[in-house]
Structure formats: structure tokens, C-alpha cells
Write a protein that binds this DNA or RNA. Structure first.
Length: 272
DNA sequence: ATGCCTTATTTCATAAGA
């Protein structure tokens, strides 16, 4: 059984590469993030041709997550109970009584895939520590923790993977000094990850294809990928029932090369 | 080393990403 998670940074822009990668890699269950497309406009037909069932959750311009599975796809959840929406900065010009303003964004989709409960997650960025978006990020993590705790009481074989937008340790960024005062490395964000692990989830750390760090994201700018100036923010959190079956895991940095890549690389996990 | 931003949209400018 092969699992994979990949922030594709627009499934429409990435479709040729995604289809090629699926055919080459052959994952059984795939979580996608930042699909940036409404659910009805997800390219389901092209993916189904490769033998996958599709569950897509989308807002349109931003966010968007999906699950692809060729081992079954049932009991789909679009978002999770208690998931907050972004209410904006004070004075940002958003009307709090605008219909739908606080509607949760498309950042989580869950499903039963074979004998696994699987969640594809795209955590809020946070923008700047202390901002309304940062508070939203922490609130989203707190709600996620509650939702996963309830799920774990029913299904002990669970995987929550995706773009967590937090580097768990200083070893997970190319230069800790470069992130002083930034999101993704603050104690509160790292505590949010620790709180998830305290539920019984394990961080399945992949092997890098090259170099010492299993980074999964490199900024498009300034040649940061060839210099391996990246971050490990795409994570696979699994319960012991799943983590004990891990036979291998790697970051597919080949998918970050060449023409028109995403700025994230896929993480691939093989289960015995 | 496999390159020196990219995406979608209210598009020729902007917001967001991390």
C-alpha cells in the first residue's frame, strides 16, 4: 500500500505533471492540497481514468484539498466539526455580517480508504505572528485536534497528512536564523503539532532523496531549490496501527525539478 | 546544479503564498 501527499499549487496548472507522476509512482491513496479549484471544476475525469476515485473540496481561487484512492473512498467528510473560518483583520474591510464570511475554507477532506481513515489537510499560513490570520491558524489547529480525537475513538488506523505549514524543529528549516520573527517556527505553532502528536499520532519522517534534510518545500525565488534552501512542512501523521506498518518513506524531489513544478515535493509512504 | 517566482482573478495590477 502506497500513500502520498502533495501540495500541487493549483491542480489545473499542475494537471499534466500530476497525471504523469501518478502513473509513474502508482500511489494507492493520494492527498492533494492547494488545488485552487471549486470542487465541481476538479479534473476528476482525468484522474478517474487512472483508476482513482476522487473526493474534492474546493473554494475556487484559494485553498482546496482532495483525496484520490484506488482502494475505496467512502464516508467522505468535507471539513471537520468545529472547523473555524477566517474572520479577517480588524479594518480589513470585511463585513462580519456578510453571508458566508465565516464559512470554513476548504482545508480538510477525510474519507475511509480501504482499512484506513485518511485526512488531506492544508493548514492556514498564518502570515505574521500575532496577526488575525495567525490566531486563525492556531484556532484551526485546536479544532482539528478535537475533531481527530473524536475520529480516533472510532477508528484506530488513521493518517492525517498534508501541508501543515509548520516546521516541527529547527532542523526542518534550511537556516533557523532566516526565520526569526516568522511564522512556521514559533513555539505556539510547534506546540499545535505537539498537541496532535499527543493524541497518539506519529510523525512519519521521510528520507530525503539528496542531502541531509527531508525538505518538502522550496520557494520558487532565488534558486532556493538547487541550493536546497527548503523547509519540511508537508507531514504525515499516523497512528501506531499505521506507523508500525511503514516500510519506507521519501520526499520525491524529482517532482520539484524541471518545467512548471509545484513549489512543494510529494511525500511518499509505503506500508507493509 | 538541472535552476534564479507562480498562481488565479474583480487581469496589463493585485493578493497570497511561506
Amino acid at each position: 500500500m502506497r500513500l502520498a501527499t502533495w501540495n500541487v499549487n493549483s491542480v489545473k496548472a499542475r494537471l499534466p505533471r500530476l497525471l504523469e507522476w501518478l502513473a509513474e509512482t502508482g500511489p494507492d491513496i493520494v492527498g492533494l492540497q492547494e488545488t485552487k479549484v471549486a470542487a465541481a471544476l476538479f479534473p476528476s475525469a482525468e484522474v478517474e481514468e487512472l483508476g482513482y476515485e476522487v473526493a474534492a473540496h474546493g473554494d475556487g481561487r484559494w485553498n482546496g484539498v482532495a483525496l484520490l484512492s484506488r482502494v475505496g473512498l467512502e464516508h467522505v467528510s468535507l471539513g471537520f466539526p468545529g472547523e473555524p473560518g477566517y474572520e479577517g483583520e480588524p479594518g480589513e474591510g470585511l463585513l462580519l455580517d456578510e453571508p458566508g464570511l465565516r464559512r470554513p475554507e476548504a482545508r480538510a477532506v477525510g474519507a475511509d480508504c480501504g482499512d484506513l481513515r485518511v485526512w488531506s489537510l492544508y493548514a492556514p499560513n498564518g502570515r505574521t505572528p500575532g496577526s488575525a490570520h495567525y490566531e486563525y491558524k492556531l484556532d484551526w489547529y485546536a479544532a482539528l485536534r478535537s475533531a481527530l480525537r473524536d475520529e480516533l475513538s472510532r477508528q484506530p488506523a488513521l493518517v492525517a497528512f498534508g501541508d501543515f505549514n509548520v516546521a516541527p524543529t529547527d532542523d526542518d528549516v534550511w537556516d533557523p536564523a532566516a526565520f526569526a520573527g516568522s511564522t512556521h517556527v514559533t513555539p505556539a505553532e510547534r506546540q499545535a503539532l505537539a498537541d496532535l502528536r499527543a493524541l497518539g499520532l506519529r510523525d512519519v519522517v521521510p528520507a530525503p532523496m539528496k542531502g541531509p534534510h527531508p525538505f518538502t518545500y522550496w520557494d520558487y525565488r532565488a534558486g532556493m531549490f538547487p541550493k536546497d534552501q527548503g523547509m519540511r512542512i508537508d507531514l504525515v501523521y499516523a497512528t501506531p496501527a499505521v506507523a508500525d506498518r511503514v516500510a519506507g518513506a521519501y520526499v520525491d524531489r524529482e517532482a520539484r525539478k524541471g518545467q512548471g513544478p509545484s513549489d512543494h515535493a510529494p511525500v511518499v509512504v509505503d506500508l507493509s
